[in-house]
Computed example of a mutant assay.
Amino acid sequence: MELLVAIAIGTLTSSGVYLMLRQRSFPVILGLSLLSYAVNLFIFAAGRLAPDLPPIISKTALGYTDPLPQALVLTAIVISFGMTAVLVIMAIGAYLTSGADDVALTQAPTDEGKA
């Protein structure tokens, strides 16, 4: 099971980095989303989840599950959803302003205005 989770984290990370290096805005946003999913899965797997144990300490249970990884992942999901929405709105605004979907759309300074 650990190998499957490690392969999933590695695949999501490599796909996210590859998409973030693209020149278009939609693949960059998709790459950031995949990278955030990889980090969420990594945090969740690093929490050493114990099946069939309560997240609250009780006298009848043999142990408990640490609730901190679940709380961190839930918070990260909400933050990544909000940041994805902000990035989509910024990408739409940049497309409507410049008329292109290129991330690195810059103009080199010209010497025509200097005389």
Rank of each mutant, 00 (worst) to 15 (best):
V78E: 01
Y95P: 00
A76P: 00
G93R: 09
P55L: 03
I89L: 12
L49T: 07
A38D: 02
L12T: 13
A76N: 09
T106W: 12
I92N: 07
V17E: 05
D52R: 04
L74F: 10
G31D: 02
T106G: 13
L68S: 13
I7L: 15
R24Y: 11
A46P: 00
G93K: 10
A46W: 02
T110D: 05
L53C: 01
Q107C: 02
M90H: 03
S25D: 01
T13A: 13
V28L: 11
L32E: 02
G93C: 01
P109H: 05
V86D: 04
E2I: 13
A45K: 07
I77F: 04
S36N: 06
P69W: 05
A46C: 06
R22A: 13
K59I: 14
M90E: 07
V103S: 06
A6M: 06
G93T: 05
Q23N: 14
D101F: 10
I9W: 02
L34P: 01
V103E: 04
L53R: 11
V17S: 01
T13E: 04
T13S: 07
N40Q: 10
S36E: 01
A50D: 08
A91K: 03
M83I: 08
L34S: 02
M90Q: 04
A8C: 11
M1Y: 08
I79D: 01
L35H: 08
I9R: 11
I92D: 01
G16N: 08
A94F: 11
T106Q: 12
Q70N: 09
G10W: 10
Y18S: 06
A94C: 08
Q107M: 14
S36A: 03
L30E: 14
L72K: 03
E112K: 15
P109C: 10
E2D: 12
T65S: 09
D101P: 00
T106A: 15
G82Q: 04
T84Y: 06
A71L: 12
D111A: 14
L3P: 03
I43D: 02
V39T: 00
V86Y: 12
F26E: 14
L49D: 03
F44V: 08
T97P: 00
T84C: 07
V5W: 14
A61E: 15
V28N: 14
L12E: 06
V73G: 01
I57Y: 03
L74S: 15
P69S: 07
S33T: 14
L4W: 14
L96C: 04
F42W: 03
L35V: 03
A100T: 14
L72M: 07
I29M: 08
T13Q: 00
Q107V: 08
